[in-house]
Structures are given as structure tokens and as C-alpha cells.
Computed example of a mutant assay.
Amino acid sequence: MRRLACAPDTRPLISDRNHLGALAYCYATREEDCLPYRTARDFYARRVAPELPETVLTAILLVSPGRSLTRRGNVAELPRGKQWFDEGLPERLHHFCTDIAPSLCPTPPTVINTDGATPETVLAQVAGVLADAGLDQTAQRLASATAHAPRPPLDPRFVDTYTQLGGLEAFGHPFTPPIAHRGGTVQLCRLGAPHHDPAGHTRLWNPLGPGPWPPPGPAWSR
């Protein structure tokens, strides 16, 4: 899901993850130790929805459950991703996005069906949503973006820490180049994906086990 916020006299905010995405996961998962959907929905109704302005827009990039599994190779690359290859989960996510999400947004979301669409076509459609929201410059940048950017390599400065804390299994692949941040350098990886631990619980992946997260110490890739 993509939430696009556009309000007069404010800077636009584009978010790849939002409360609607959390609700979708709570609805779709059937793990007993996960936050129940009813609890998450009630909290959303009490504390989040009343604060959302009408100018908040949401675009949902939708794919059919079967196509979703096929695009991802039908097999999880890492153990933590296995639950996403249970066909029932993407089916429930699909149902949430089409039948439930519209009632949870200030403005019904724009649903873009990506089945059979090229990445360039999808980018063009999202750019159209941005343009309709008045975000012309952002729309132009997106329309001219490449849909086939190569995956960036892990920066050598992070290799030792990355390896010591669990490597690919813990952090996933980098998806940005090194970024200057607060006087240092960071590189974003797909950290924090839901994972089935050895006890069968679903939780955020923590390669260090119980304790503070993120861990103290030298600069690390996050």
C-alpha cells in the first residue's frame, strides 16, 4: 500500500507503510500470538482515524494471490518469509484491500491492479494518482524513474557488523545505497520482517535474542 498525504501549505509525505497496512496484516494472519484484528481495528477507529485529514490519499497496488506467489518464485528465499507463501494469507490480504480497506480511509483508496502490467505501467499509474493530488513535481520524478534499478550491494563499511548480527537471514538484502544520516552513514535493509521463530511464534526478527533492539555498538546497517 502507498499512502499519499497532500495538504495545503504542508510538504507532501509518501509512506510505503501505514496503519492500513498493519490492519491488513492483522486481518490476514492466523497466528494465535499476533494482535487480533478486532483489537487493531478498534484502536485505529479510536486513535488514528479521527486524526486523518480528508487530504490523506491511499493507493493500493493490488496483485492476485496466485500471481503474487508466482512473482516471488513460489518458495521463500529465507525461513522468515515462509508464512508469506501460504496461499491463504495473500488471499485474505486481497480481500482486505478490496472489500474492507475502502471503509477505513477518509477517501476511498485508488486500487491499481498490477496483474499483467509492466513495472513502467504501474509507475505511470501511480504518477497519475500523485498528479491528481497536486503533487506534480513528485509525479514527474516518479514517471521518469527506472523500474529496473539493480539491487545495491552491501557497502564494505557494514560487512563485518552485518555478518556478526546474522547476515542475510537477519537483515535481508540492502535496498538503498549508503545514505548520509545524522553525521554518519546508514544503509537500509529489509529489517524487521515478520518471522516464525523456532518456538513457532510470529514476531519481529531479532538475531540477538531477548534484549534491546536495535543493539548498542558501532554503526550498523538498518
Rank of each mutant, 00 (worst) to 15 (best):
P50E: 05
R41N: 10
T55N: 03
R47W: 05
T55K: 03
R47G: 04
L62I: 02
A40G: 09
L20G: 14
E32C: 06
E31R: 02
V63L: 15
R46H: 08
G21Q: 00
S64C: 10
A45G: 11
L23H: 10
R46T: 05
C34A: 09
R38P: 11
P65W: 10
Y27R: 12
V56N: 06
G21W: 00
I60T: 15
R67E: 15
R38S: 14
V63A: 15
G66A: 11
A28W: 00
L35K: 08
C26K: 00
S64G: 13
R67K: 12
T29S: 13
L52H: 07
Y44P: 06
R38N: 12
L61F: 01
T55W: 07
G66L: 11
Y25K: 00
L52R: 02
P50D: 06
P53K: 03
L61R: 00
Y37N: 08
Y44L: 11
E32S: 07
Y37H: 12
E31H: 04
L35W: 02
A40Q: 11
A49L: 07
R46D: 08
Y37P: 08
A59Q: 05
P65E: 10
L52A: 01
L20K: 03
T58V: 14
P36M: 10
P36A: 08
G21C: 15
P65I: 11
T29Q: 12
R47S: 06
A24S: 15
R30Q: 11
E54D: 04
A45Q: 13
R67Q: 15
D42V: 09
Y27N: 13
A22F: 14
T39Q: 11
R38I: 14
T55Q: 05
R67F: 01
L52I: 12
R41T: 09
I60G: 00
N18R: 00
Y27I: 01
Y37K: 02
C26M: 02
D33C: 06
R67H: 12
R46A: 07
P53H: 05
E32L: 06
C34Y: 10
C26P: 09
R30N: 07
P53T: 03
V63E: 14
R47K: 02
E32V: 03
P53R: 04
A45T: 14
T55S: 08
R38F: 10
